[in-house]
Design a protein around this nucleic acid. Structure first.
Lengths: 104, 104
DNA sequence: TTCCTATTTAGCTAAATAGGAAATTACGTC
DNA sequence: GACGTAATTTCCTATTTAGCTAAATAGGAA
């Protein structure tokens, strides 16, 4: 729980998620949308990955990042569950699967 | 959006919300549940209040804090909406009312 | 191999954050 | 008024975080 909120407590990281919600991208493509230097983007991606909300896939010399939307929503519904009947229902209906697998 | 995630990116602050989910409490009562000194708790409460997720009410020399659960859930559903049809539906069904008023 | 591009890692500095102690404010009581 | 308790504010220090540049790693192409 801590990792995901730390990860989301950053405007650039939330923006990265928005971009990845559209389609998977390489680090360079993501960086093109920011003023920030690539190493900084790379670190933000590492934080998002540690929180489980993005997944990484090497493709030649490129690294493609993709949103893991169920991890994002699942963790937040899990947090909301004690505060909201609807979230509780949704969270229960979604058994959190560990390593939901990255299909090729 | 930034304020709420910054507010939630702290274990002590999330714990405070859990306590307040049970019942409103004074600062001292909240502090009793922590190792932390009261001024620190007071500051955490200020952060939560700035994010709109708790409300403050003076009662004599005491200050009673209460969870504003709709603000907590509403903001998170708002964030989730673009990522999840269910959240979108819930967020739309809940017009975010500004200053939902603290009734005495 | 050498060169080039993509990405990550290391090392650094500046800024933000968390916590404590002490001082201050606010209220109630004597 | 003086005193005591509740809470906040101020000021300080330690830690963490964000961003940069430069260097290292990894892969593809010549």
């Amino acid at each position: 729980m801590d990792k995901i909120f730390k990860a989301l407590a950053s405007e650039p990281r939330r923006r990265i998620l928005e971009y990845l919600a559209v389609e998977p991208m390489t680090v360079g493509e993501i960086a093109d949308n920011f003023e920030m230097a690539m190493p900084s983007i790379s670190k933000h991606l590492a934080v998002l990955k540690a929180a489980g909300v993005v997944r990484e896939q090497k493709r030649g010399q490129y690294v493609i990042y993709a949103l893991v939307v169920e991890a994002l929503t699942g963790q937040l519904y899990g947090f909301l569950a004690p505060y909201c009947g609807e979230a509780q229902r949704i969270a229960e209906a979604r058994p959190k699967r560990r390593g939901a697998g990255l299909r090729e």
